[in-house]
């Protein structure tokens, strides 16, 4: 079993906190040697998901975790809220679907940017979205 320590936990209560999540995620991505493009992808996905947590979940938390794997490091982001949950997951993941008048690319876009994606939700029980970005160890290439 790999131990996955939580490096940072950031509360998401206001739109300033979305900026806080972006900055915290970038710091961790830089610290584990992500390329500039990969940093940009992970921070952009974090921004989309933090906004969803705020707007749809009524706020929550972002946890930033690092997992050492055989020949790579995974940066995992867990967005958790105790909001109303998502009734129709398939619809929520569809490009262009928005319940808030946005572009509808937050969830589907973050899923495309990430290497791994997991969504757990139930109506009335909140939503947890987990994305992971894998940084392959250059020495193992």
């Amino acid at each position: 079993m790999t131990i996955v320590p939580t490096v940072r936990e950031v509360p998401i209560r206001t739109d300033m906190d979305i900026v806080g999540v972006r900055q915290a995620v970038r710091e961790v991505a830089v610290s584990v040697g992500f390329s500039l493009v990969d940093q940009t992808k992970v921070v952009t996905a974090a921004s989309e998901l933090a906004r969803n947590t705020l707007k749809h979940g009524g706020g929550g938390t972002a946890e930033i975790e690092l997992e050492e794997r055989a020949d790579s490091t995974a940066l995992r982001l867990v967005f958790r809220d105790e909001g109303p949950g998502i009734g129709d997951v398939e619809l929520a993941l569809r490009d262009g679907y928005s319940s808030s008048g946005g572009l509808g690319l937050g969830l589907s876009g973050a899923r495309r940017l990430a290497d791994e994606f997991d969504l757990r939700t139930a109506e009335g029980e909140g939503t947890t979205v987990t994305v992971a970005f894998v940084n392959r160890d250059p020495a193992a290439r």
Binding site: V37, T40, G109, L113
Partner: peptide
């Protein structure tokens, strides 16, 4: 626009 931003936007679907 920075190149890495352009790459990410396209992947995001924008």
């Amino acid at each position: 626009m920075r190149p890495e931003v352009a790459i990410t936007l396209v992947e995001l679907g924008l």
